[in-house]
Design a protein around this nucleic acid. Structure first.
Length: 662
DNA sequence: GTAGGGTTAG
């Protein structure tokens, strides 16, 4: 695994963008002077709205109205825009009413702002009504774009594209003849919106087609268009094409850099994300901002490299971005995923402004650290604080219950979320609940829950059941779950392995053999497991049965020594995690060389006695490794923290924080 | 004199 040089990351210092200090009415009035002049008010409202200070903009609008000044047509668009930004339908409707009273509701600027406001507040049919009421002779590209974006933002990309088709027809028919012919041609903003729609329809090749249109119309050198193309290709799973677009852009702004960094981070390509960040820091014509650091923190969270995370946290403080909700939430997430849930809580407590995502990140953090009680306590606090939980919050709550085996609590929230919070359980919530029931041994209940689901069960749901069937040795339900999984993900061999383990457990060797042959014939390969361990600032990566690491021979020798000690405390190799295909001795070898064991051994050999060992694994830790690491923690008297793909395990004195329940 | 639509985030 290639990692970016951390030294250059810490040199970010010199190239930073202090976030703009909040403008306020007093400073603005000093700038525009005349309080009794409508135009002065218009400028103030516009400045505030443009600067993103929507609350102040609306306050200014209302102050102006209290002075009984008569608004002009230019007063409304910015006031309405501020309502859109705040998703404040109530104020939006009031502004609409006032625009009507003063006779500006037919103004095309006002109409476009209103269309945008209604769609951002989720009132798409009201937006469409206003759009249809605009006479064709004054309807321009902004009106079209507002409506188009409305569809995209309300998850109706197909309708957006149909509308664009209609637009193109009008553009070709009356583009030259209309009285506002200058405004009826497609522009770069409209194109960006269309590209965004393309990336959200599930049909292949739409983005590629639109890209062709972009080039034909000569918009390919526009930064905004390029930025949207980068995003569109990534949404379609073509991260490599995103990178090509990025590399081909002559002009790049902060959004361009942030987009590619975020894409890498979201797709698990953390090293690439950090590499691009490094280049961004070195480039002189663009400065990183809150969004940049948020994306970088996501990459670091993925890697679990605490030292780098702390480095970026320092950077956040230097850049005076501590009060940014976006950055604050990313810091919480980073600390949780780097195993420092208490540092995360400290950062959480220090946040002045918290939104639903900040609370959710902290709840999820407690969940993955098996601190379900704290997760639920925080959830109650959140509700008490008047913050409305969202879909993801409930996923985090149920997942916390699942990690801790809280069946009652799980049932309670699954049943209550729809009734009390108007959020219908989705496939992720059922996934957690099936996992929870399954691992608690309530397999029949889990299966019945799946059968009664209102949404189509996905691979997570069936995968949870299959996993539970392995733990509780249920062949019948295991076969049902596996059959569904083979249909849903025919190329994932993990399910074949699991089913095979279930057969092995039941002594059904013929079925084991059959599964194995099937895998061989379909050439299904197992995702290779790897583990990371950070030692004195350097990250060491280990693969299954690694023979690449310079110390590998010593590591294997040490593992042999450890094995003897483990057997003295009663350890017997658990064979069920391995396909029954080799003789006993060979099987033991296969097990022993799982990457997490190598990483643990390496870390014990090379670190200060008594220090905590931190490992990150890309897959779930297997049963045997779990037992071994648990016992190692006792034998060598070390605390060992393992982050697997699902959660954290804290091993100490021969016990694990998960209570062997995971 | 002043005005409306897009792309990056947890």
């Amino acid at each position: 695994m290639k990692l970016s040089k951390s030294s250059s990351v810490s040199s970010v210092v010199s190239n930073v963008d202090k976030h703009s200090t909040n403008t306020n009415l007093t400073t603005l009035f000093n700038k525009y002077v005349d309080k009794n002049n409508v135009f002065s008010w218009n400028s103030v409202i516009a400045d505030l709205a443009r600067g993103g200070d929507s609350v102040e903009a609306l306050r200014a609008f209302s102050s102006m109205r209290k002075l009984s000044l008569t608004p002009t047509r230019s007063t409304f668009p910015c006031a309405i825009k501020s309502c859109s930004a705040l998703h404040d339908l109530h104020s939006g409707k009031q502004a609409h009413q006032q625009a009507f009273i003063f006779g500006f509701h037919r103004d095309v600027f006002v109409s476009s702002a209103l269309i945008d406001m209604y769609s951002k507040c989720g009132e798409l049919s009201d937006a469409r009504k206003l759009f249809d009421e605009i006479p064709q002779r004054i309807r321009n590209i902004v009106s079209w774009t507002s409506m188009l974006t409305g569809y995209v933002q309300n998850d109706n990309a197909r309708e957006a594209l149909l509308l664009f088709k209609e637009f193109l027809l009008e553009e070709s028919e009356c583009g030259g003849a209309s009285e506002n012919s200058d405004n009826v041609f497609v522009d770069s903003v409209a194109i960006a919106s269309v590209l965004s729609a393309c990336s959200r329809v599930t049909v292949n090749g739409v983005t590629e087609g639109a890209h062709g249109f972009v080039i034909k119309r000569g918009f390919d050198s526009e930064v905004g268009v390029g930025n949207t193309l980068i995003d569109a290709y990534a949404r379609g799973g073509h991260v490599d094409v995103s990178r090509k677009v990025f590399d081909g852009m002559i002009e790049k702004d902060a959004v361009t850099w942030n987009s590619i960094i975020a894409i890498y981070a979201q797709n698990g390509l953390a090293a690439e994300a950090l590499d691009v960040f490094d280049q961004m820091v070195k480039s002189t014509d663009v400065k990183c901002n809150a969004v940049t650091l948020s994306a970088v923190l996501l990459a670091i969270a993925h890697l679990g490299v605490l030292r780098l995370g702390k480095c970026i946290h320092d950077q956040v403080i230097k850049m005076d971005l501590e009060e940014s909700v976006i950055v604050g939430t990313s810091i919480i997430d980073m600390y949780c995923k780097c195993g420092q849930v208490d540092l995360a809580r400290k950062a959480f407590n220090q946040m002045k402004e918290k939104n639903v995502r900040s609370w959710t990140a902290m709840i999820a953090g407690y969940g993955m650290h098996c601190r379900a009680r704290e997760a639920l306590d925080l959830f109650y606090k959140m509700i008490k604080a008047g913050v409305r939980p969202n879909y993801i919050t409930f996923v985090s709550v149920l997942s916390a219950c699942s990690h801790a085996g809280l069946v009652q609590e799980g049932w309670h929230w699954l049943n209550t979320m729809g009734r009390e919070f108007n959020i219908e359980p989705g496939v992720e919530h059922y996934g957690c609940m099936v996992d929870l029931l399954g691992r608690a041994g309530k397999l029949k209940e889990a299966y019945d829950l799946i059968e009664g689901m209102k949404v189509k069960p996905d691979f997570v749901v069936w995968g949870s059941l299959l996993g539970a069937c392995r733990i509780h040795k249920n062949v019948d339900l295991g076969e049902i779950a596996a059959k569904k999984l083979f249909e849903l993900e025919p190329n994932n061999c993990g399910y074949h392995v699991l089913l095979s383990n279930i057969y092995a457990n039941a002594g059904r060797w013929e079925d084991v053999e059959r599964t194995r042959t099937l895998m061989k014939n379909r050439r299904l390969a197992k995702t290779p497991g790897f583990s990371l361990v950070e030692l004195r600032g350097k990250v060491h990566a280990f693969l299954v049965g690694d023979k690449e690491h310079p110390q590998h021979e010593k590591i294997y020798e040490y593992l042999e020594e450890l094995n003897v000690k483990l057997q003295e405390v009663g350890y017997v190799t658990d064979m069920t995690s391995v396909i029954h295909d080799v003789d006993q001795e060979e099987k033991e070898m296969t097990l022993r060389i799982h990457s997490e064991k190598l990483a643990v051994a390496f870390a014990i050999m090379n670190s200060v006695p008594g220090s905590t060992i931190r490992i990150i694994k890309n897959l779930r830790v297997c049963g045997d490794c779990h037992t071994v690491i648990r016992l190692i923690s006792k034998v060598v008297d070390r605390e060992i923290v393992v982050r697997d793909s699902k959660r954290f395990h804290y091993f100490k004195d021969g016990l694990c924080s998960c209570g062997d329940y995971w």
